[in-house]
Every structure is written in C-alpha cells, then in structure tokens.
C-alpha cells in the first residue's frame, strides 16, 4: 500500500469542526469521489471532529490518500488525548451516548465509511481511523 504525505488539522475550537468538513470535502473531491460518497465522508468526519471537541477538548485530524491493489481511497484519522472510551463496543451501539447526544455519531460514521477502527485507552485518549475506497 502506498500513501501520500499526511496532512494535519488541529481541532480545538467549535469552528474547527467546519474547517474539518471543508478540508475533508476538498480532499475527497480531489480524489474523484462522487457527490454521494463525498457527502458520506464529510458527514462521518463531522461527527468525529465534534466528538473530539466535545469529549476531549482538543485533538488532531490527519488525512492521506491510499493506493492499494489498483484502487485508491482516503484515510482520515482523529487523534485525541482525552478521557478515552470506557466501552468501545457500547460506543458503537446506536443510541448509546454519554454526552447527551443522539448516540449516532460513531455508529453513523461506521455505516458511512468502508472501515472504522477505534483504539482507546481510558485516561489516555482515543484514535479513530476511517477509510473509504473509491468504487471503480
């Protein structure tokens, strides 16, 4: 798998959620995703950028292009050093929220993307990795 250079965006203010959406939209369009996939990717990124702002206060979004087996895609990673997720499986359940939300952020993002991976340690932070491949 070859990858492009990684680009970073710091998330520490509410307006950075909008910045994350714009960055991801631009990147997905440039990679040639269709409008529906672009909307899916941007919506998933919006949920995760908000999670960082809401639960961790600050963190980083990193993205890069992927190339593997003749297909191309995008990988977006959300890294924070916040409180971590106690029960990752429950956090992926629909309707489960510790923050008074709808509990649709993580499960929603998982449905919109091809791959979603969560690494989380309580007291140390959370890394969520999203991938979407272009349909050829």
């Amino acid at each position: 798998m070859t990858t492009s250079t990684t680009t970073e965006l710091v998330i520490q203010a509410e307006s950075d959620i909008v910045a994350a959406r714009r960055t991801v939209r631009e990147a997905a369009v440039r990679l040639g995703f269709g409008i529906t996939d672009v909307t899916r990717i941007v919506t998933a990124a919006s949920e995760l950028a908000r999670n960082i702002f809401k639960y961790a206060g600050e963190g980083v979004m990193r993205w890069r292009y992927l190339e593997a087996g003749g297909r191309s895609g995008i990988e977006i990673q959300f890294v924070d050093h916040g409180p971590g997720i106690e029960d990752v499986n429950r956090a992926l359940e629909e309707g489960y929220s510790t923050g008074g939300g709808l509990g649709m952020g993580l499960p929603g993002a998982r449905r919109l993307m091809d791959e979603l991976d969560i690494q989380s340690t309580v007291g140390q932070g959370t890394t969520v990795t999203l991938r979407k491949w272009r349909r050829s």
Partner: peptide, 14 residues
Amino acid sequence: MRPAVAVTATQIGL
C-alpha cells in the same frame, strides 16, 4: 433536501 444528503441521512438512520 439534496439527494446526497437524503442518502446519507437515511444510511445513518437519522
């Protein structure tokens, strides 16, 4: 509502 937005909202169960 735009078509792509409708598809996305339905897919995540909104």
